[in-house]
Amino acid sequence: MARIIVVTSGKGGVGKTTTSAAIAMGLAKKGHKTAVIDFDVGLRNLDLIMGCERRVVYDFINVINGEASLNQALIRDKHCDQLYILPASQTRDKDALTQEGVGKVLEELSKDFQYVVCDSPAGIERGAHLAMYYADDAFVVTNPEVSSVRDSDRMLGLLSSKSRRAERNEEPIKEYLLLSRYSPERVKIGDMLSVDDVQDILSLHLLGVIPESKSVLTASNSGVPVILDEKSDAGQAYADIVARYLGEDRPHRFIDEKKGLFGKLFGGK
């Protein structure tokens, strides 16, 4: 049985798709057969970030409607043969997603994948609801900024009340916090909420902090998940997150300000 992970946030533009792509790639590179699904029907993005937009023939909605088989629609990633992408439809809207249809696709994927990553659209409407409905784990992506934190909190409420696990009174969805676009320099001058502030408001297990990084934009534009850029701080942060999720114990990085050469030479805090 696959473990179903939803990457969600409530708010848009916080880095859900970047995170979905990076996490899915990270899991696949560790040897786990992984599928990543774009739930943002109508605003297809994941295929761009994954660099497979030229190979899209069939999409998620085609599979739900029975117009294509799952194998026809799944695109194998060109960097890692354990990773498959199920793109969203560009020409439809979220009403084309049905609870039964999504359930059927996830059930079928669960048969031969170890992880299924669901990239949720922003908002709390149908698309976002169906992306999290069947989840086992939730990665809540939050920016260190009040409205993002508030929306994440709302999403956490929905995760604990509107999911299949909640409806069936099963063990609740495991929730993890991913703090993205973090800039220790701006936290220091009081421009940004700190890790502690966010955790104080959300009281949630922190899986990792992803620093604000130019490499994210570069990676998105070139269609290569940022986790493959092993030299970049964001890439390393995602690698840490995947390792922690899989049970490895890694210390948190990127929370404190980078010390320049001067700071390194003279130490001190």
Binding site: R150, D151, D153, R154, G157, L158, S160, S161, I201, S203
Partner: peptide, 21 residues
């Protein structure tokens, strides 16, 4: 969490935080 509502016909005891909203 934000957006959730709890109603008790007697006392209400919450052992965790009550979020804004």
């Amino acid at each position: 969490r934000s957006g959730q509502r709890v109603y008790s016909s007697g006392d209400l005891i919450v052992l965790a935080q009550v979020s804004a909203g």
